[in-house]
């Protein structure tokens, strides 16, 4: 697969602070790349460099092989950028807004009309074409801005925190929209400081913290490679409180807790779950210990790891 975005040793310093530290990144054509890390990790800094808005202190970056530093115009024509915080021209009509940006991107005037209609249809704003931008709701403005990133039919969309501040329904719609854009052949880079916002749309992720890329790759690969923290679900017929106490004292067991109701006496049945780290004892030994203190184990199952586990593993729990 060809890499649409490539960076080499990308570094950006602000006085003493190294916001971005030798970032080597590749984004494959046709992927949805989730750029994940806590606030202040350097996501926006990276994105602004890729969008030709910020110069790196050192390092190189290419979009479709065009140098971000040497050929900013060629790069601009290939990128649709949605910033984390942005404003819209309130005193324009919705179609004028898109038409203005299309003109900035030198889209021929005779193609703009149809394109505007198509894009408004795509983001579900067709009925607002003649409305003033100021009359739109926040979510609508966000969708308008997304439509704006598409006016010049770029091959790459770079969306900085696209889901932040969205209500759950809007977030679901956004995910659908992203999948649709991907099926249209767009490559998408999006950032987030909350993993769960994006987990299910991304094909690839890169985890960044304090300006350093901790890990990157295909989502499935990273799960199988890194999901070593297993989640165990346990059901007991009685002695649930004893079992929980014993698990808490076992090395390698993380966060044993009750699923559902917390039993009031040691005689009630209950469901528990806990994590097991790589260096924990063998699972059978945990079961042995439970049985040895008289816990009637009804079931003991391991669940497959997910992206959340990868995240916790890579960041050692320092990241949200």
């Amino acid at each position: 697969m060809a890499a649409l975005v490539q960076t080499q040793g990308l570094t950006r310093r602000y006085d003493d602070l190294t916001a971005l530290d030798s970032l080597n990144l590749e984004v494959e054509q046709g992927s949805i790349f989730g750029f994940i890390g806590p606030n202040g990790a350097g996501k926006t800094t990276t994105i602004r460099i890729l969008c030709t808005l910020l110069e790196p202190t050192s390092g190189e970056a290419w979009i479709e092989g065009y140098s971000v530093l040497d050929e900013p115009d060629a790069v601009r024509r290939r990128i649709g950028y949605m910033p984390d915080f942005f404003g819209v021209y309130e005193d324009m009509k919705v179609w004028e807004y898109l038409d203005f940006f299309a003109a900035c991107y030198e889209v021929p005037a005779n193609r703009r009309g149809k394109m505007t209609d198509d894009l408004l249809g795509l983001v579900d704003l067709g009925e607002k074409k003649l409305a003033y931008v100021e009359s739109l709701s926040r979510g609508m403005k966000q969708r308008l801005c997304l439509a704006r990133t598409l006016v010049h039919d770029p091959s790459l969309l770079i969306l900085d925190e696209p889901a932040s501040g969205m209500d759950p329904r809007a977030r679901v719609e956004m995910r659908e929209l992203l999948k649709e854009l991907r099926s249209m052949g767009k490559t998408i880079v999006l950032s987030s400081h909350i993993l769960s916002e994006l987990a299910d749309v991304c094909t690839h992720i890169g985890i960044i913290e304090r300006g350093r890329l901790l890990d990157t790759g295909r989502v499935e690969d990273m799960i199988s490679r890194l999901a070593v923290r297993k989640l165990i679900r346990l059901r007991v017929g009685a002695r649930a409180l004893t079992a929980r106490q014993m698990l808490a004292d076992t090395p390698g067991v993380i966060e044993p807790k009750f699923d559902g109701e917390v039993p009031q006496t040691d005689e009630e049945p209950a469901a528990l779950s806990f994590g097991l780290t790589d260096d924990a004892e063998d699972q059978s030994q945990v079961i042995d210990r439970l049985v040895s203190v008289g816990v009637p184990v009804r079931s003991f199952t391991e669940e497959a790891g997910d992206l959340e586990d990868v995240f916790l593993q890579v960041t050692k729990g320092e990241v949200q």
């Binding site: 910020l54 040497d70 990157t216």
Partner: peptide
């Protein structure tokens, strides 16, 4: 303009493979 083109006449090109992920 927040940035200026560094060397438009002789742009750098990406190496075939930069990193091993």
């Amino acid at each position: 303009r927040p940035t200026t083109a560094r060397n438009p006449a002789r742009p750098t090109r990406p190496p075939a493979a930069i990193i091993d992920p």
